[in-house]
Structure formats: C-alpha cells, structure tokens
C-alpha cells in the first residue's frame, strides 16, 4: 500500500537558505508531527509539499502520484496555517464550501455540505455569520473544516494552534486529532511544542532527523 505522502530526497529553500535532502514518509490515516525550533525550515517544507514553493530538487509523492511539478491547486493537499486566514469577503459557510466550489460543486450544494461540516465541529448556526464574529478557536475550527471539505489526500498543519492560549490549544489539539482519526485523514503537523506533538500525533519525528 502506498504512503499517503512521501518526500524523496526533497531539497527545499527560501531566500538563499537551502535544506539538505529531506525524506519523510506518512502512512495513510496517521498523523505525523515534525518537531523543530522556529526558523529551522519546517514551514518551507510544508509550503513545498503543498506546491506553493517549488522544490529545488527531489520528489513529492502523494499516494502513488509524483506531484513535484503539479501546481498547488491540482495537488489535493490541504494546508492550515498558524492563523485561520478566513476570507473576510465570504461568510463562514462560503469559506468552508470554497474548495468544493472549485471542484465544480454548485454553490448551494457546497453550502449544504459546509453546514454539515460546521455541525461536525460544533458550530451549528454559524454558517451565515461573518468571519469577524468568530473567536480565535472557532475561526481555527472553520479553517480546519475548510481545508478538509474538498477531501484532500493529505492535510498539512503549520503550527495551527500556536496563536491560541494554552488551555484552548491543548483542547483543540486533542479535538483535531480525534476528528482526523475519525475521518481517516493522513496529516503532517509541524510544531515547536513537544507536548502538543505528543498529544496529536501517531509518530513524532524531529526535523533534523528527516534531513540527511
């Protein structure tokens, strides 16, 4: 059975900095946490896997497809950042249905599906609200279901809880882990917090260990 995600001697870089080749393997339905200090290149790795940055060399393989040269919008890789980055020009449900609309789903069908997903994360009745009305934790939940709505092959979480306060961070980390396992979604979660990594992940690897 192929890995959900595999990087094969992937070299990433940003503004003159270049990593050593990175090899990472994520099994289907599992959550892998990558632990490393701020600025070590974790986010650059995720951006490259998502197709936002070009790989300098090596390969990104999602399922059994080499997506190294496929643009981000065709990769089926979801990404959640530290901040929710919800589109303020759309209401909550339209944000969640955004990816479905890009797949050709009609706006009304995308909205209906978005409302189901919102219910799933405990945000019943929030569909028509402006994103400005959400608390930090609610906004991050919306960002999560927005990324999950188009059924990505793998979900990348770039320190999505670090902007939240400690109690909420731990609570939400556990909740997200349950949600992902419940749906069988493979995910890569990068963090600099060992406790958070342990709380959410099936496997924890240090960034330095996956670099050759």
């Amino acid at each position: 059975m192929p890995y959900a995600l595999r990087t094969d001697h992937l070299v990433v870089g940003y503004d003159g900095w270049v990593s050593t080749p990175i090899t990472l393997e994520v099994e289907p339905g599992t959550i892998t946490a990558i632990l490393g200090p701020s600025g070590c290149g974790k986010s650059t790795l995720l951006s490259t896997i998502a197709g936002i940055r070009e790989a300098i060399s090596g390969h990104v393989i999602v399922g059994d497809v080499d997506v190294t040269h496929i643009p981000a919008h065709e990769r089926s890789v979801g990404l959640v950042f530290q901040e929710p980055l919800l589109f303020p020009n759309y209401d909550v449900a339209r944000n969640v249905g955004y990816g479905l609309e890009r797949q050709g789903v009609s706006r009304s069908a995308a909205r209906a599906r978005a409302l189901e997903l919102l219910e799933w994360v405990g945000l019943v009745g929030y569909g028509d609200r402006s994103v400005d009305e959400l608390s930090g934790g609610q906004a991050q939940r919306v960002a999560l279901v927005r990324a999950l709505a188009p059924n990505p092959a793998i979900l990348l979480l770039d320190e999505p809880f670090s902007a939240l306060d400690v109690d909420l961070r731990q609570h939400l980390a556990r909740e997200v882990a349950e949600l992902l396992r419940g749906r069988g979604v493979a995910a890569v979660h990068v963090t600099h917090d060992p406790a958070e990594a342990e709380a959410i992940a099936d496997h924890v690897v240090r960034f330095a260990d996956i670099c050759e």
């Binding site: 998502a50 981000a72 990769r75 990404l79 950042f81 589109f87």
Partner: peptide
C-alpha cells in the same frame, strides 16, 4: 497583502485567476 490568503486558496483548488478574483480583488 498577506500572501498566505492566496496560498490557502490555491491549496483549496483555486487557479491563479480564481485566486485573483476571489481573494486578491476583494482585498
């Protein structure tokens, strides 16, 4: 402009033109 909004839209399947229309232009 925080470029990450556009990146999120890309990972949700938006083509560069759709990103411009739905994310950049409203901003």
């Amino acid at each position: 402009h925080d470029d990450r909004y556009a990146r999120v839209a890309q990972t949700l399947g938006a083509t560069p033109l759709t990103v411009f229309r739905t994310v950049t232009l409203p901003y």
